[in-house]
Simulated assay, not measured.
Amino acid sequence: MQKIIAQIAQEIRIQERQVLAAVELLDGGATVPFIARYRKEVTGGLDDTQLRELEFRLGYLRELEDRRQAVLKAIDEQGKLTDALRLAIAQAPTKQELEDIYQPFKLKRRTKGQIAREAGIEPLADRLFADPTLDPLAEAVAFTRPPEVLDDGKPGADFSTPHAVLDGVRDILSERWAEDAALVQNLREWLWSEGLLKSSLVAGKNENDPEV
């Protein structure tokens, strides 16, 4: 809790004792308007705007900390919690970045990438990614295999052609990139800074109508 108080004080540029006083009042059931009007002497003069920002950040950071502990526990129970991973989780500043780190460890249904890995296609994915000069179709021939037949007689994974094998390569690589927290964060920042939002008039709508 002390860490949260210190962070809020730094963000809003007030003293930690002011944050602590406001948190105690909020936790006691007092509302922001009440505190701003009747408890200025307790909070050191915090106004309505500062208190609303404080209340929002308090809720967010508490939820972030609760989620942080849940993620640590979930990964630890899988036996995959390393010192580096523990540090990355501890330093994640937002819920989104925390979820990006946790993404590879989430229990999920059998994916196309997982099916391709089980079929032994991952070495090809690594080879093609490492050397763009290789001919993908030619390299994929060695990884073809007869279509899988499931125990119930239904058809399973089919990597019987080079093109099907390369679909598996794409599934493996796309899942790998989607679970790379640093890459995802960089892409998100790039999209926010470089992305463009475009809107166009729906057919049949009158552009002079204020509601449109």
Rank of each mutant, 00 (worst) to 15 (best):
M1G: 13
K3W: 09
I4R: 07
A6W: 04
I12Q: 08
R13F: 08
E16Y: 01
L20Y: 09
A21G: 05
A22V: 04
L26G: 01
L26M: 09
G28R: 00
T31Y: 00
I35T: 04
A36I: 00
R37L: 08
Y38M: 09
K40L: 14
G45N: 05
L46I: 13
D47W: 02
L54Y: 12
F56A: 10
L58D: 04
Y60V: 12
E63S: 14
D66P: 02
A70N: 11
L72M: 09
L72F: 11
L72W: 07
A74L: 05
L81K: 09
L85K: 05
L85N: 09
Q91T: 12
Q91H: 12
A92R: 02
P93C: 07
Q96T: 14
D100L: 09
I101V: 10
Q103T: 01
K108V: 15
R109V: 06
R109K: 09
R110H: 15
R110Y: 15
T111I: 08
T111D: 00
K112E: 13
K112L: 10
E118N: 12
D126L: 12
R127Q: 14
L128A: 01
F129V: 07
A138V: 10
V141G: 02
F143A: 06
F143Q: 10
E148M: 13
D152F: 11
D152C: 07
K154H: 10
K154Y: 06
G156N: 07
D158R: 01
F159T: 09
F159M: 12
P162S: 04
A164P: 02
D167K: 08
G168S: 13
L173P: 03
W177N: 02
W177K: 04
D180C: 01
A181C: 02
L183H: 02
L187M: 12
E189C: 00
E189H: 10
W190E: 14
S193Y: 08
G195P: 08
K198M: 05
K198E: 10
S200H: 14
A203G: 14
A203E: 13
D209M: 03
E211D: 10
E211H: 11
E211A: 06
